[in-house]
C-alpha cells in the first residue's frame, strides 16, 4: 500500500484503526469508560457515608475531629501538585521531550510516595489512639458505636483510594520504563495520556474525601 501515510506504518499502529489519531481517540475513550465504572464504584461508598452521617451527625463530627487535619490538607496539596506534574508529563510526551517526560514522571511518582507516607503516618496514629474498629476500639462512650462506623468508612474509603494510588505508582513505573526505552514519542503518546487520566481521577476522589472525612463539624469542637 504505497499511499499509506507514514504514521499508519508506525510499529504500535493496530491495523483495525484508520490512523494513529483514531487509535489514540479510541484508547482514551476506553479509559474514560473505565473511569465511569470507577465513579460508580466510589459512588457507593460516598452514598453509604452520606446515609450514616445523616443518621449520626454529632458522632461523625466528633470522630472526624480526631483525624489529623494538617495531614489531610498537606496530602491534598501534594496530590494537586502531582496532578500538575502529570499534566506537564503528558505535554512533554506530546512534544516528544523525552528527558522532561521522564523528569515529570519521576516527580509525580515521588509525590505519590509522599502522599502514601503521610497516609501511613496517619494510619499509625489512629492505631496508637485505638481508632481501628473492632475489639480494641476506644472512643467517648456516648459515641462509641457510631464512631466505629465513621472509622470503618474512613479506613475503607481512604484504603481503597490508597490502593488506587499504589496501582497508579505501578502504572507510572511502567510509563517511566517505556519513556526510558524510547517507546513514547510525539506520535505515540497515548499510554502516557491514558495513565494521566487515571492519575487525575484518583486526585479527584481525594478532592471529595478530604472535606467529607476531615472537616465535618470542625467549627463545633
Amino acid at each position: 500500500m504505497p499511499d499509506q501515510p507514514a504514521a499508519v506504518l508506525h510499529e504500535h499502529f493496530a491495523h483495525q484503526f484508520e490512523s494513529l489519531d483514531h487509535q489514540k481517540e479510541v484508547s482514551l475513550l476506553g479509559m474514560w469508560v473505565f473511569l465511569v465504572t470507577e465513579i460508580l464504584f466510589f459512588g457507593g461508598l460516598f452514598l453509604t457515608y452520606t446515609v450514616y452521617r445523616h443518621m449520626y451527625p454529632s458522632a461523625f463530627a466528633a470522630a472526624s475531629h480526631e483525624l489529623i487535619v494538617w495531614a489531610g490538607t498537606l496530602n491534598t496539596a501534594v496530590l494537586i501538585t502531582s496532578s500538575l506534574t502529570m499534566a506537564l508529563a503528558v505535554a512533554a510526551a506530546q512534544a516528544g521531550q523525552r528527558r522532561a517526560l521522564m523528569a515529570f514522571l519521576a516527580v509525580t511518582m515521588a509525590l505519590g510516595c509522599v502522599f502514601l507516607g503521610v497516609k501511613a503516618f496517619e494510619y499509625y496514629t489512629e492505631y496508637v489512639e485505638r481508632h481501628i474498629p473492632g475489639h480494641g476500639f476506644q472512643f467517648e462512650a456516648e459515641y462509641a458505636q457510631p464512631a466505629q462506623i465513621f472509622f470503618s468508612l474512613y479506613f475503607m474509603m481512604t484504603g481503597l483510594h490508597a490502593l488506587h494510588m499504589i496501582i497508579g505508582l505501578g502504572v507510572m513505573a511502567v510509563m517511566f520504563w517505556l519513556s526510558w526505552r524510547g517507546t513514547i514519542t510525539s506520535e505515540y503518546s497515548s499510554p502516557i495520556e491514558i495513565s494521566g487520566l487515571y492519575w487525575h481521577f484518583v486526585d479527584i476522589v481525594w478532592i471529595f474525601l478530604f472535606p467529607l472525612l476531615y472537616l465535618v463539624g470542625r467549627h463545633v469542637h
Binding site: 496532578s83 500538575l84 502529570m86 499534566a87 495520556e193 494521566g196 487520566l197 487525575h200 481521577f201 486526585d203 479527584i204 478532592i207 471529595f208 478530604f210 472535606p211 467529607l212 472537616l215 465535618v216 463539624g217 467549627h219
Partner: peptide, 22 residues
C-alpha cells in the same frame, strides 16, 4: 458548611476534568 465544602470540591473536580484531563 457541608454545602460550601461540596460546592468547592465540585468546582475543583470540574477544573481537573476540563483542563488536566483535557
Amino acid at each position: 458548611n457541608t454545602l460550601a465544602a461540596l460546592a468547592i470540591a465540585v468546582f475543583k473536580a470540574t477544573l481537573v476534568v476540563l483542563f488536566f484531563m483535557h
